[in-house]
Simulated assay, not measured.
Amino acid sequence: MSVAMAACSLGLHLSPDNNNNNNNNCFKVLEKSICSVSMLKTTSMYDTIKPSFILHKTRLSSSGFTIIPRATAISNVEDGNQGVADIVPTPIVIIDQDSDPDATVVEITFGDRLGALLDTMNALKNLGLNVVKANVYLDSSGKHNKFSITKADTGRKVDDPELLEAIRLTILNNMITYHPESSAQLALGAAFGLLPPKEQVDVDIATHLTVSDDGTDRSLLYVETADRPGLLVDLVKIITDINIAVESGEFDTEGLLAKAKFHVNYQGKAIIRPLQLVLVNSLRYFLTRPSTEESSF
């Protein structure tokens, strides 16, 4: 599989399979728990903090299992120069599969509050990944930390949506752990952070879906909706379940919102108008319908 995309991309080369059993197996989340991710102690600024990952068997739309990070108690914030009265910036995590043909590029921004993020890089290594290079740049929006990531076993970029989602949740968990003020700005903060968001996003209002031609061989699908754990995996599954191939993707976490761009095709061609409507309606139904509690079954 190859992958590609910009911003918070998730390059995915996922060809649809008409065999439902194969589709289900492709997206079944590996049932394993990842506990006590050891953190790299970089300086005396850090107390030893070991966030844990809990594998919850909750019904999260179409993905049966999802790795959800739980923030642990905070002893020190990575950079101690921000005051309580400061305006908390919007956390942004970008997974980019377009800018580098050989690696998945991750970009993390949280104003000017982030340090070297060596703890985050070490947590990514515990997912079976290598951080092959890292750099930092500044602009008017703050300090941008960029990592180029490959799979340790193959040396290639990540093309598995479940692993991409695990990367995203690992980064957000570390941000909540070392910067508890970010919890109120993230969807994960409602259940797993120390400070829940003051306002919840109305998913019906927040959800926007468009499909447009991107040449003769593919189309561009744009999705914006309320963020939640497992969203990336679920979106890809819904798209491929209607026999649309995902060539590459881009997945951004911006505070309480998730924004995704997918290059998609149907049998190697751009998606025709009737199939565009099927795709949009399927995604809209999935994203905006009321969730059913597992206990009701």
Rank of each mutant, 00 (worst) to 15 (best):
L194Y: 07
D86N: 08
G249L: 10
G230W: 02
P69D: 04
A226F: 05
E293K: 10
S291M: 13
M1T: 05
S61F: 12
A6N: 07
P197C: 01
R113P: 03
F286A: 13
D47K: 10
S62F: 05
S33Q: 15
R218T: 05
I171H: 11
L127F: 02
I67Y: 14
S99C: 04
L279D: 03
L256W: 02
K143H: 12
N24D: 13
F286S: 08
G189R: 01
L164A: 03
S36R: 00
S212E: 07
G111A: 13
P91W: 07
P196Q: 02
H56D: 15
T225F: 10
Q200K: 11
L209W: 04
L14K: 08
G193S: 07
L124N: 00
D96H: 08
N24W: 12
I54E: 14
P197W: 05
D119Q: 06
S248W: 04
I49C: 01
A245S: 15
S248H: 05
Q97S: 15
V88W: 04
A134H: 14
V280Q: 10
H208A: 08
F53V: 09
V131K: 07
L221M: 13
D119L: 00
I95M: 13
R228C: 11
E78T: 01
M121C: 12
P161D: 00
N23A: 11
K125Q: 14
N25L: 15
D227T: 03
L188F: 14
L127C: 01
K32E: 05
L188G: 12
S140I: 08
D47V: 14
G64N: 14
I167R: 07
S52P: 02
V236Y: 08
F27N: 04
S63Y: 13
V278M: 08
I171G: 05
E165G: 08
F297K: 09
F65I: 05
D217E: 09
F27G: 01
I239Y: 00
N122W: 04
G111P: 10
S183M: 05
A184F: 04
S75I: 13
I271E: 04
D47I: 11
D112W: 12
S99W: 01
V246Q: 09
I176M: 15
L195E: 10
E294P: 01
R59C: 05
R70F: 10
L138E: 04
Q276A: 02
A73R: 15
S148Q: 04
S61W: 08
V264R: 13
P290Q: 03
V93N: 11
R59T: 11
K50Q: 15
A191I: 06
G193F: 06
T66N: 14
H179E: 15
L169W: 03
L279I: 06
E78V: 09
L277M: 12
D214R: 10
R156Y: 09
I54G: 04
S248I: 03
C35M: 06
Y266F: 07
P180D: 01
E224V: 09
V29S: 15
P51M: 11
N281C: 07
T154I: 06
N265C: 06
T42I: 11
H13C: 12
G189S: 07
A166I: 02
S219F: 06
D139C: 00
N24G: 03
D204I: 02
L114E: 07
V236E: 11
L275V: 04
E181L: 13
D100E: 01
F147W: 01
F147N: 02
L209T: 06
S44N: 03
